[in-house]
């Protein structure tokens, strides 16, 4: 039961983008079109779930036994970078269809702070490996939801007459602010 609550919280109530501000770069950069936004969401889901699992395992079986927990930042960022490379090579060789769908987004994910952020949050909140992985997956779904909604709005917004200084980045920020207010509604789920 607790694990479901963690998942709902990570996905909707504490939405990774709209309330924790992680992964903003990808959220703003890849949201012009809904299909590329969806592809990015899928790639993030894939990598985030995998990296939560791998980081959880490495933290528990490597860093804690050797008492080097303070190396977690360096360890996690290297794991994420290596993992992204590995996923890229693996899908290219064995699952070309998946590579077609995710390939171009993968290099962007290494510097997506949501991935490192979730790994660090898992450690901070003392989640075990299973809870951590579910937490990572739910967070990624929240990211997917937010980026796709923003992409739909931006596709419509192309036809709007936005005041010149607000064109581009500022109006996207204000749209995100309104989305963020809307997501406050989910706080009642708690």
């Amino acid at each position: 039961m607790e694990i479901i609550m963690i998942a709902i919280t990570a996905c909707l109530i504490n939405n990774v983008v709209l309330s924790q501000f992680l992964g903003i770069c990808a959220f703003l950069g890849v949201s012009q079109k809904s299909d590329s936004a969806s592809g990015m969401g899928m790639a993030v889901t894939f990598v985030l779930t995998l990296s939560s699992l791998v980081c959880g395992v490495i933290y528990k079986f490597l860093l804690i036994p050797f008492h080097v927990e303070y190396l977690k930042t360096i360890a996690f960022i290297l794991i994420v970078a290596a993992l992204v490379q590995f996923v890229e090579m693996f899908t290219k060789k064995f699952v070309p269809s998946l590579y077609e769908a995710l390939g171009i987004y993968l290099p962007l994910i290494t510097t997506n702070c949501a991935v490192l952020g979730v790994a660090l949050l898992n450690v901070q909140n003392d989640y075990d490996i299973l809870t951590g992985t579910v937490h990572g997956f739910a967070t990624a779904i929240g990211f997917w939801l937010a980026i796709v909604i923003l992409a739909f709005i931006r596709e419509k917004m192309v036809y709007n007459d936005v005041p010149k200084p607000f064109k581009g980045f500022p109006i996207v920020m204000i749209t995100s602010a309104l989305m963020s207010i809307a997501f406050f509604g989910f706080a009642a789920l708690k």
Partner: peptide, 15 residues
């Protein structure tokens, strides 16, 4: 709160 961050940054960049 969270929405304020988006709102203020949007306005500052617009200015």
């Amino acid at each position: 709160l969270a929405p304020g961050a988006f709102l203020v940054l949007g306005w500052l960049v617009a200015i």
